[in-house]
Amino acid sequence: MTDTGGIAPAVESILATARQRGGGDERVSVDPRPLPAAIQRAEAAGRVPIIAEIKPTSPTTDGERRDDPVELAEQMVDGGATALSVLTEPEHFGGSPETLRAVREAVDVPVLRKDFILREDQLDTVEADLILLIARFVDDLDELVTAARERGFQVLVETHTEAEVETALDAGAEIIGVNNRDLARLDVDLSTFESVAPSGSEDVTLIAESGISTQGDVERMRAAGADALLVGSAIMDGDVAANTRRLTTTETEQ
């Protein structure tokens, strides 16, 4: 469903780089740690399910954080993170497959590979528990979802519009993320999740992405039906363990 009309220049640059990036030499096979089960365990323990993101830098942030990513991952898990998201895009986000591999070896929670994956061979770059596919940029979502599942990956299909959600559902997506950030303008609006997230889809795990920085934001997204929340900058900016704990702790526990 590739749609690159109206895309911000920064995102166009990321896509151009992604189109040129190769994949792995050998087909990977993954025994994944299930995200839905991890979410259930967090809720049973009274924690808000947070997917904490290790993001050294991005086109929408200033500067770069150079901490050891394994140490950051361990601090996030200590703070109660249900799962981790690791950027593997090198040129614009400072990530790498090697970082994801090291993080996954160090923790026991599900780890999402966050990147701009456009072709099947790019699935074979590194093992992860989940991979991100952005509905807007994938030519044949059904085909790529199937290819990912054949390798054992769980697939998080990212959407931003109702039409993209329908495309994700038609492709059999079981984990759908709604990105509150509009990639055309790079601005953020939390009402996106509220208006776009499908209702009554008990078999689908819903993830709210972007723009979540306060406990009020967490409560708002959860009230709108988010099973889990993907949070990057609000956790990476400052004390990672404390920031994670702040967002995973319910108001009644504080």
Rank of each mutant, 00 (worst) to 15 (best):
N243F: 09
E89F: 00
A234S: 08
V240W: 02
D115N: 13
N180D: 07
T161E: 12
D189Q: 10
P36D: 02
A45G: 09
E89T: 07
F193Y: 09
E202A: 10
V30H: 07
D140R: 08
F153D: 07
V240M: 03
G95R: 06
I212R: 15
R104T: 13
R27H: 11
D170Q: 15
E164V: 03
V28Q: 14
E194T: 15
I175H: 00
R19W: 13
L229R: 06
F116S: 03
G216H: 11
R113H: 07
E253Q: 06
L15N: 05
E53D: 04
A228Y: 08
I117L: 09
G23F: 11
L183G: 02
A173Q: 04
L133M: 13
D237G: 09
G24Y: 07
R66N: 15
Q154H: 08
D203N: 08
I39T: 09
G232P: 05
G238I: 15
A45P: 01
T125P: 13
T248P: 05
L72I: 13
A208F: 13
S58D: 11
D189G: 06
V70C: 08
D139Y: 14
R21P: 08
E158D: 08
A73W: 01
T146I: 08
D139N: 10
G23Y: 02
I54R: 14
A81G: 02
P110R: 08
V204K: 00
P59F: 01
D31T: 15
A102W: 07
N243V: 04
V28D: 04
Q75L: 12
A83L: 12
V231G: 01
R185G: 02
R136M: 10
R119T: 12
A173E: 01
R66W: 14
A224Y: 10
D124R: 09
V48Q: 14
L186M: 05
H92T: 04
R27K: 10
A42H: 07
R181G: 05
D121Q: 14
D67W: 15
Q154A: 02
A241I: 02
G211L: 06
I54G: 05
T159H: 13
T60C: 06
T214S: 10
G46W: 09
P69S: 03
L229I: 07
A52Q: 05
T250V: 02
T192F: 04
D227C: 13
A135W: 02
E26Y: 12
D31W: 07
R33H: 09
G238K: 15
L247S: 02
V109Y: 09
S195Y: 14
N243L: 01
R66P: 13
I7V: 14
A148V: 13
I131P: 09
L87G: 04
S199Y: 12
E164M: 00
D139V: 03
T192P: 03
I117N: 05
V218G: 04
L190A: 06
S13W: 11
Q254W: 08
F193A: 00
E120G: 11
V48P: 00
T250P: 11
I7N: 09
E71H: 13
P59H: 04
D68N: 14
S195N: 04
S96G: 10
V86K: 11
L84M: 01
T250M: 15
A197N: 07
E143A: 04
